[in-house]
Amino acid sequence: MKKFEILGTGCPKCNMLQNLTEQAAKELGLQYELKKVTDIKQIMNYGVMITPALVVDGQVKVAGKLPTLDEIKKLIQ
């Protein structure tokens, strides 16, 4: 079971990152759980200074930009 976290305060790109991550996981046939983290203090505990950010199994994979669907597939496998 993969664990994904989307870090962001709820802006359009944060929502888009969530949608793309779910799409990527489904297309790859991954079992996953996804959690949105919107609290700034919690976000900063990851060392993340810019959002949106994608965390996969506790590791921040990308921050401050919206990857493409294909890029996300590589990040979450």
């Binding site: 060392g47 993340v48 810019i50 950010a53 590791q59 921040v60 994979k61 990308v62 921050a63 401050g64």
Partner: peptide, 17 residues
Amino acid sequence: AGVGARLSGFIASAQGA
């Protein structure tokens, strides 16, 4: 220090800034 410790959040933030 977060960069030096190779913590993923700091690295991803630097790469995305």
